[in-house]
Amino acid sequence: MPEDGIDLKARDDIMRFQEMEHLLGLFLDLGVTKVRITGGEPFVRKGLPEFLIKINQYEKLESINLTTNAYFTEDAVQLFQKIKMDSINISLDSLNREVFYKITRRDDFEKVWSNIKKFLLTDLTVKLNMVVIKGINDNEIVDFAELAKNSKVEIRFIEQMPFNGGHFSNDILSAEEIILILQNAYPSMMEFFKMSSTARIFEIPGFKGRLGIIAGHSRTFCSTCSRLRLTPEGILKICLYDHGSVNLKDMLRSGRSDQEIKTAIKDAVSKRAKDGFESEQRTLQKIHFSKNKLSMAQIGG
């Protein structure tokens, strides 16, 4: 989160739940089978549990996934166990209270960690996402890996991306450097190949959980990425680094037909850049902006 916060959107500028349900139905018709609810923080929006229950009834939807900071999830465990929740991704960048505060600007580590432990006691697939920030929390890499020793959890180390709110160093600790740190600590660590995954997955003999490395800045997974992103404003992004292809909310509200919206989606996908670097260059050619002032709180985790 940028130090001075972000500009809040007016209610009419973001999609209503009914609009999200409608658009999800169109994506399912086009072959999408998996959805992830992200943010910002999904649980700040009233009505989220009811929305999850509603889309759980879509027959073509094979899995629902959610990314959260675990701050508002005290009562979410029972809900997630009732629906076809495939995985819970929890953003946690430090196990140290002071560092947690420095990164999140919230002195709530104990509350968040308490909620995370509730999830770890369930049969739900839990993934902890740690964005590795050089000089801030990179000394905790092995501490995080140790969490997978006795818990069936996937610890995912993510390269710091250029959407950091403008308040951290741009000196990136690369995915390869993160892997080297882990290999030095765990010489028997082995890579586990997983098709179409944005993460490189590793297993350590004797560990109940696994480790994942996501090269979000290096963008080495672009050739296998099949993800689409729909922002709260209804803008379809074919890549995290692009400026957005088409506003589906506006098309919906202007009375465009379902077929017209599907055609717009297919047209946008057909023009996908070869990788995140090309997407970024296309964006820079269209508009002038400082990406380092953008935040995942604005474009979604």
Rank of each mutant, 00 (worst) to 15 (best):
E3G: 03
E3C: 08
K9R: 07
K9M: 07
K9W: 01
R11C: 06
D12N: 10
E19I: 01
E21W: 01
L23P: 01
G25I: 13
G25W: 10
V32W: 02
T33Q: 08
T33Y: 04
V35D: 00
I37K: 00
T38L: 04
T38W: 04
G39Y: 15
E41N: 03
F43R: 10
G47I: 03
E50H: 13
L52C: 05
L52F: 07
L52K: 11
I55L: 08
N56Q: 08
Q57D: 11
Q57V: 00
E59C: 06
S63I: 14
I64P: 03
N65M: 13
N65Y: 05
T67N: 13
T67A: 11
T68V: 01
A70K: 13
A70W: 11
T73K: 14
D75Q: 12
A76M: 10
Q78F: 05
Q78S: 15
K82Q: 13
K84N: 09
K84Q: 05
K84G: 00
S87Q: 15
I90A: 13
D93P: 15
S94P: 11
R97P: 15
V99M: 15
V99S: 12
Y101T: 08
T104P: 14
S114W: 04
S114H: 05
S114N: 13
I116N: 10
I116C: 07
K117F: 05
F119S: 03
L121D: 04
K127P: 14
M130P: 13
M130R: 12
N137M: 02
N137T: 00
N139S: 12
V142C: 10
V142E: 10
D143V: 00
F144G: 08
F144N: 10
E146A: 01
E146G: 00
A148P: 14
N150L: 10
F163Y: 14
F168N: 03
I172Q: 02
S174C: 06
I178H: 03
I178Q: 04
A185N: 08
Y186E: 08
F192Q: 12
F192I: 15
F192V: 15
K194R: 08
M195H: 09
S197Y: 11
T198A: 07
R200N: 11
R200I: 01
K208L: 15
R210Q: 14
I213N: 03
T220L: 05
F221S: 09
T224F: 01
T224N: 08
S226D: 12
S226A: 03
S226L: 01
R229H: 14
R229G: 09
L230N: 06
T231F: 02
T231L: 05
P232K: 02
P232V: 08
Y241L: 06
G244V: 09
V246G: 06
K249T: 00
K249P: 11
K249H: 03
D250Y: 04
M251N: 08
L252V: 04
G255S: 05
Q259C: 00
T263W: 00
A264L: 04
I265K: 05
K271F: 04
K271P: 01
R272L: 06
A273F: 03
K274P: 01
F277E: 06
F277S: 07
Q281M: 11
R282H: 06
L284M: 06
I287H: 04
F289L: 13
S290V: 06
N292H: 14
A297F: 14
A297D: 00
Q298V: 12
G300L: 07
